[in-house]
Design a protein around this nucleic acid. Structure first.
Lengths: 228, 228
DNA sequence: ACCTGAACACCGTTCAAGT
DNA sequence: ACCTGAACACCGTTCAAGT
């Protein structure tokens, strides 16, 4: 096969296997992971899938559909891989860390998250949290506030971390160089006017993102534990 | 002066008063507040300022510069208007609520926030929080984690709320109708599979966003109080 | 120094036409 | 039903030319 078209102005060969919504989404995720949000263009999709625009629009409503479905897919993977522990407290930490790591690995989901914070995949996440809080004897009356606070903290921290991850990927610098540059920049702030920021810079250099995140999870859980 | 050009294909009259970076930023904020992020286009700016593209690019680096400066401006207003209370706990709540309300009033800052979570204006915010935590006798060792957790919660909740605010503005619906629609949509989830989500729907209908936010602030502060 | 606006290189999306 | 790709309406940005 693979015959060269006789006609010089021949179209590019059409793909043999049928296109499907799923392969489009998977390719979109690859593009997003590879080059961030700006790497996902309809043009790039047609090239990677060796197809035309209409073919894509036949399976997908628009670019927003593409982005939100890709985000759902990423979250679905997290929940599938979530390991359950017998200790609810530990399960909560693992669940939170799974989301944190997922957004770190796919920083582009943060943008989609701030556009649509209530995607179906997050319903499962909410349900899991609420169930674990119930296991921790958080009274029903307080569960609504507690679960919401927990989710807001996790998403807030994840969004911030995603911004760092994106900068790291964009500049091609490694973590140490990035933190040094950030610390050097922050160190310029007037220590007289910003004593606490100044003090934080030192900790910034030696802190571990995931440990700091978990420290926050523990703080939120300790606060929830006071609700009786 | 003000002579009519003899030439029929004359250019639109150039503005008399000089353009400045500040009027550009203020106009950008007006456009963003009026129609969301998509309303800020260079074209719209030239029309509103009755000027050309080059004039704008003479005062501003690019659209990103425009967005981040506009965001700084919004945060600066919050910190200027922040009322200090003698009680550090109350000051923290007011500070948090000020940020919450600002993002509610200017939902487009949420997108910029997830792009660049460490704008200079947020340094002041961080500094204020750390100072108040110090006043609350949070030990220096724990302050880094505590202040970071507090900020992540506030920003996370604000980003989620901004998404709601944007949907409300886009659809032109009022709050009650929006919540009803959301609740109706959520109510479709299987109560057997999602008992806690199902229970949350009822609370969603009668909950107040700001009160829920403050409940979360209290939870985080209670958690911080356990750090000794 | 400050401003004008045609021109350029890109987007997402549509749709008549093909198989 | 599924796909092609030229065409369209928009972007942000540049830059030779004006004052």
């Amino acid at each position: 096969m693979a015959k060269t078209p006789a006609n010089g102005s021949a179209r590019t060969p059409r793909r043999k296997d049928g296109l499907s919504r799923d392969v489009i989404i998977q390719t979109a995720i690859e593009l997003l992971d590879g080059g961030g949000e700006s790497a996902l263009t309809l043009r790039a999709l047609t090239v990677h899938l060796s197809t035309g625009y209409g073919a894509i629009y036949h399976h997908v409503a628009d670019k927003g559909d593409l982005l939100s479905t890709a985000t759902d897919e990423v979250f679905a993977r997290v929940l599938t891989g979530a390991v359950v522990d017998t200790d609810p407290r530990e399960s909560l930490r693992r669940l939170a860390l799974g989301l944190f790591d997922a957004i770190d690995a796919h920083p582009w989901v943060a943008a989609e998250l701030s556009r649509q914070p209530w995607r179906p995949a997050l319903l499962d996440f909410y349900e899991s949290i609420a169930r674990l809080l119930d296991a921790l004897d958080v009274p029903a009356r307080a569960r609504f506030d507690a679960a919401g606070t927990f989710m807001s903290y996790v998403l807030g921290e994840a969004v911030q971390n995603a911004a760092n991850a994106r900068h790291l990927a964009d500049n091609g610098t490694d973590r140490a160089a990035f933190l040094d540059a950030a610390a050097a920049h922050w160190a310029e702030v007037d220590p007289g006017k910003y004593p606490f920021v100044h003090a934080a810079v030192k900790q910034l250099r030696e802190h571990d993102d995931r440990e700091q995140f978990l420290a926050g999870v523990d703080i939120v859980m300790a606060g929830i534990a006071t609700l009786r």
